Structures are given as structure tokens and as C-alpha cells.
Simulated assay, not measured.
Amino acid sequence: MKYLYLLAPILAFFAIIAVYFLIQTNRRPIPHYEPKEFVFDAEEYLRQLKMQHKPLDSSGVHRLLLKRTRQKVGVYLESLEPALDTIGLEIVNVYHSVMGFDYVPVITSGNDWPYHARKSKHYENKAIDFRIKFLLNEEKKSIVDLATKKLEGRARVIWEKGPMEHLHVELLEP
């Protein structure tokens, strides 16, 4: 009984050694993951469309928009208006006509950013933003002009310049 106070530290020491040996015996290599480079193949896309026997419903159009674009981390697009999914695909088509089919546009914002203007259409799920920040000025101008012409009467296209430069697309009120 005289040395009972030493029992807890000794047990803790042996427990730490046991855990150490358990960890050492369970050494497995961590698998290395490299994401595949996404390359859009127009012929494969057309082949997939021909294989479908029924037209896409609104959830199919939404999935297609997500598949044809990349999204910035944290972007929330799940509650978009169905018309905005279609408009988003038309913007993707504009990007492809200017940049080529290998280019994958990036959606930088949906209804996810708390710093939009107070009455922004983003909060009504009627607006999305596309990245144009790293493109050449001629490409930016071509994309904005083509998108404005293509969506005239259905959506407003705004080239928002500055440090957070992007292409803002919002639905027009009916």
C-alpha cells in the first residue's frame, strides 16, 4: 500500500507503449490520389444526348449545368430557379464558342455569399456569377457581348469589374 500512488503513472506508461506498438503494427501506405484532368469532348457529349430517349427535366438540366462547369468551393447552387439552369448552360455555350470546347467555366457564386448587395437576386436564387478574372480583355469583351446578345429579354448580363471581377447573370422579372 505504501507505493500505491505509483500505480497510475506506471499503467499510463504501459498504455502509451501499447498504443505506440499498435500504431507501428498497423502501418499501411496512404493511397495517392490524383484527380483526372477534365476534358470536354463535344462528340461524346452529342453521343450522350442522342442516347437519351427522353428530354431532360429540370433536375437533369441542373445536373448538366453542374457537370459542364466547375464550382468555387462553398458555392451553393441547389435551389436555383430552373430557368437560371438553362441560362447557365447558354453561358457555358458562350464560353465554349469564345474559348473552345476544352475550357470549363467556373461558377463563383450562387446563393452563398453574405456580401452581395442587399436586394441582390442572389438571395432569391435568380442570379449566378461566372469567373472571367483571368481571361484576356478581348475574350472577356467577346463573352460579355455574346452573352448579352444571346440572353436579351430573358436575363441581364453585367460585367462586374474590380478586384472580384466576374460575370453576373440574373433573371429578369416577367
Rank of each mutant, 00 (worst) to 15 (best):
V61F: 10
H32N: 10
E34P: 00
N137R: 11
V94F: 05
I91K: 03
S59Q: 12
I132N: 01
D112A: 03
H122Q: 08
N125T: 05
T148C: 08
V39P: 00
T108Q: 00
V169G: 03
L136N: 11
V106G: 00
L77C: 01
M99C: 06
D129K: 07
G88M: 05
F130V: 06
L64S: 11
E138A: 14
F134D: 15
K126I: 03
N111M: 11
N125R: 05
L56Q: 08
E44P: 00
T69M: 04
K150Q: 10
V39W: 05
E90P: 01
R70P: 00
M164Y: 15
A117W: 04
E90M: 14
G88A: 06
D85E: 12
L77N: 03
S58L: 09
E138I: 10
L84G: 03
I107V: 13
R27A: 08
R28E: 12
H96M: 07
P55S: 07
A155L: 09
A127S: 13
L167I: 06
F38A: 15
Y76D: 15
Y76K: 15
K119M: 09
R63D: 14
N137C: 02
H122Y: 07
Q52C: 04
N137G: 02
L136I: 07
S142N: 14
S59F: 08
H116K: 11
F134S: 15
